[in-house]
Simulated scan of single mutants.
Amino acid sequence: MSYALTVFDKKGELLLNESFTFPNDQEAIDHGKKLLEEKSYSTTTHRLVRAGKLLLFYR
């Protein structure tokens, strides 16, 4: 399945736009969280989606 992780700053500008494929939601969520931590975006507005389904969200 295809997933999209996006991160925005407080002004709404796109900071990160990553797409990746995983066999299930949990693996994608784990990868997304790891990527956010690596790039120091875990407390920046972000979302992880799959086909319109919101899997992770932080504001």
Score class of each variant (00 low, 15 high):
M1W: 11
M1L: 09
M1Y: 09
S2W: 11
S2M: 13
S2Y: 11
Y3I: 04
A4D: 09
A4P: 01
A4T: 14
L5A: 01
T6Y: 01
V7C: 09
F8K: 05
F8G: 00
F8L: 13
F8E: 09
D9C: 14
D9I: 08
D9L: 11
D9T: 09
K10D: 14
K11E: 15
K11F: 13
G12P: 08
G12T: 13
G12N: 04
L14R: 07
L14H: 08
L15M: 15
L15F: 09
L15Y: 02
L15E: 11
L16T: 02
N17F: 13
N17R: 12
N17Y: 14
E18S: 07
E18K: 08
S19P: 06
S19G: 15
S19I: 04
F20H: 09
F20G: 02
T21P: 00
F22P: 00
F22E: 15
P23V: 09
P23Y: 12
P23E: 14
N24S: 13
N24P: 07
D25G: 09
D25K: 13
Q26G: 03
Q26D: 12
Q26N: 11
Q26C: 05
E27P: 04
E27Q: 15
E27Y: 07
A28D: 00
A28Y: 03
A28N: 00
I29H: 05
I29L: 07
H31F: 14
H31C: 08
H31E: 09
H31I: 03
H31R: 06
H31Q: 02
G32T: 06
G32A: 12
G32Y: 03
K33N: 14
K33W: 03
K33E: 15
K34V: 04
K34I: 03
K34C: 05
L35G: 01
L35D: 08
L35P: 00
L35W: 03
L35R: 06
L36K: 00
L36D: 00
E37L: 12
E37D: 10
E37M: 12
E37K: 13
E38K: 12
E38C: 02
K39V: 04
K39P: 04
K39G: 05
S40F: 10
S40M: 10
Y41P: 01
Y41R: 01
Y41I: 02
Y41V: 05
S42A: 15
S42V: 07
S42G: 08
S42C: 08
T43E: 14
T43N: 15
T43K: 04
T43F: 12
T44F: 02
T45P: 02
T45V: 03
T45R: 08
H46C: 04
R47E: 10
R47N: 03
R47Q: 10
R47C: 07
L48D: 03
L48R: 00
R50E: 06
R50Y: 01
R50G: 01
A51L: 06
A51W: 02
A51Y: 02
G52D: 06
G52N: 03
G52C: 06
K53M: 08
K53I: 13
K53C: 04
K53E: 07
L55T: 01
L55G: 01
L56S: 01
L56R: 02
L56W: 04
F57W: 03
F57C: 11
Y58H: 13
